[in-house]
Amino acid sequence: MERVLVADDVTVRLGGKLILDGISFWIPKGEFVCLCGPNGAGKSTFLKTVLGIIEPTSGAISILGKPAGVAQRAVGYVPQRKTFDQDFPATALELIVANLRGKWPIRVHDAERERARAVLQRVGGEALIDKPLAGLSGGETQRVFLARALVTDPALIILDEPTAGVDVRGRQEFLDILWEISASDELAAILVTHNPAAIARCAERVVYIEKKLIAWGLPDELLGKSSLSAISYARTTRTPGGVIAPDED
């Protein structure tokens, strides 16, 4: 199975402080991974390293065989809801096209509009295309950001606690969309979440870190390890289907 992401002994020190210590694992094509760990475990730092924002102090991350910093177009990113400007005068269409072009659009071409419409339809948000971002609910906003991340046809999508701050209904609807993504054989994903329902519904594999890699495996395999009690809820509610085993080395 082709590996989309390979983390090879990744160590990150920031301001002299050890944040990540020798993290190694890989994600094959189409696999949906939930990245878990307590606050301060280094999850966000790991994501930033995958996105090429932070350089590892030692070790390396490669995406489709290229260093993380030069493979940014192969990675889609859905930020936490709080990290973007809710007051910016923009529509969903402009946001999606901005990711296609790498700059903010003044005028949107018909082909770009059609591509944005198609990707919004994929996440159940076709009606949002011309809506101002400021008027969207939390769940709608995250759908638009998911569409934005998908519009470049990435091989890997990174979701950084996308349902944090979203109401219960919006969260459930968003999880339904993520579950459909997790069924895809093409798109790999890393979901950072503390939400048990999200892990139970979507995870094909779980990576648990606390600076070091503590566990990496199928949700069912990780049960019974006391240090992983935080993710043991995956046992009872896992939706069947689509589990992909990693390659043997």
């Binding site: 924002i53 940014q72 990675v75 072009r101 903010w104």
Partner: peptide
């Protein structure tokens, strides 16, 4: 166009 993107969200703009 780039300044507008960076104003919307510096992190996303940087990734683009």
């Amino acid at each position: 166009t780039r300044l507008a993107y960076a104003t919307f969200d510096p992190e996303l703009a940087k990734l683009s």
